[in-house]
Design a protein around this nucleic acid. Structure first.
Length: 293
DNA sequence: AGCCAGGAGAATG
DNA sequence: CATTCTCATGGC
């Protein structure tokens, strides 16, 4: 089953930029798994094509349902050129936005997102990908594909909650293992309602997320931005911290709380997109000055 | 060898 | 109460 969507996309930026960690480039395209859905995505002059390889545990979904879900995931209804135009009103951001391709924020599953960014603590993108891959291989349901490669669905939170710290450590999670285990156990207790979180005040949701072990200000903002539809979230990592300092404050170190307040005023509802462009710029620059903080 | 999409808890001012 | 320090882990 194929599904075509109008272009205006940079798949490499969206899928390999460090938002999602289950995609790998694959002769001209990208192969990945969303939830339990095995996909292959490729770009063809102005269009991009999605091939649904296997529905895994989503057999009950119709083709239309899957299409709607993919529209949701890739945010195809979004006017990315309009967003770029608004961001370009910022004289510092303008050249960065124009030089990078069309950047989109994927709409991921909150549980997957929480796991991914707990794994991201004091880590790096290749290692996060390895960790997430290991978690899916050990705990995720197998998804047979036509190409013969066996993919793995992302495991439900109950499976992780029923695992052990030793098991998670064996996957290379290190000190993040107890964080993930306890957070999964807290989540299955049922006190957290992600659909309710979508409607609540962002500060309330951020505070609730931060009650989970291993989720502090940065991870909470990643979950808000990448999975709970809060484009006004502004996750501050060392790359963004460096970019803001160098681009806007002459290299002067700025406390995170000040950056957060500054970003809200400067970028408002599009803070998340500004952050993503700054993140990509900072990483492409590879500034080797004294690290901020 | 040193760096890397931070968080938690204790110590300090 | 706010800021700073230290620690845990593993791959590249």
């Amino acid at each position: 089953m194929f599904y075509y969507v109008n272009g205006d996309f940079d798949l490499h930026l969206a899928l390999m930029g460090g938002q999602a960690f289950r995609w790998q480039s694959n002769e001209g395209g990208y192969r990945g798994v969303i939830g339990g859905l095995s996909l292959e995505v490729s770009q063809h002059q102005g269009l991009f094509r999605i091939q649904v390889g296997n529905r895994g545990n989503h057999e009950k979904l119709s083709g239309e349902d899957i299409c709607r879900y993919l529209e949701w995931y890739f945010r195809v209804d979004e006017n990315s050129q309009g967003i770029r135009a608004i961001l370009c009103e910022d004289q510092v951001l303008a050249p960065i936005v124009r030089n990078l391709g069309v950047l989109r924020i994927l709409r991921q599953d909150p549980w997957e997102c929480i796991v991914s960014y707990i794994c991201s603590i004091d880590s790096n993108i290749p290692k996060i990908r390895t960790n997430i891959g290991n978690i899916c291989r050990l705990f995720g349901k197998e998804i047979p594909t036509d190409s013969g490669v066996t993919e793995h669905a992302f495991p439900p939170m109950q499976v992780i909650a029923d695992s052990s710290e030793e098991e998670l450590r064996s996957l290379g999670l290190g000190f993040r293992a107890p964080y993930l285990l306890k957070t999964a156990q807290n989540l299955v207790s049922g006190e957290f309602d992600f659909s309710e979180m979508r409607r609540q005040n962002i500060d309330k949701v951020r505070a609730d997320l931060q009650t989970l072990p291993g989720i502090g200000p940065k991870v909470a903002d990643c979950v808000l931005l990448y999975s709970l539809d809060r484009l006004d979230a502004f996750p501050i990592d060392r790359w963004v911290r460096r970019a803001v300092s160098n681009l806007y404050f002459r290299g002067e170190p700025i406390p995170d709380k000040d950056i957060k307040a500054w970003a809200l005023v400067r970028f408002g509802a599009l803070s998340g997109y500004a952050q993503q462009y700054l993140f990509e710029w900072s990483r492409s620059e590879q500034i080797r000055e004294a690290p901020i903080r």
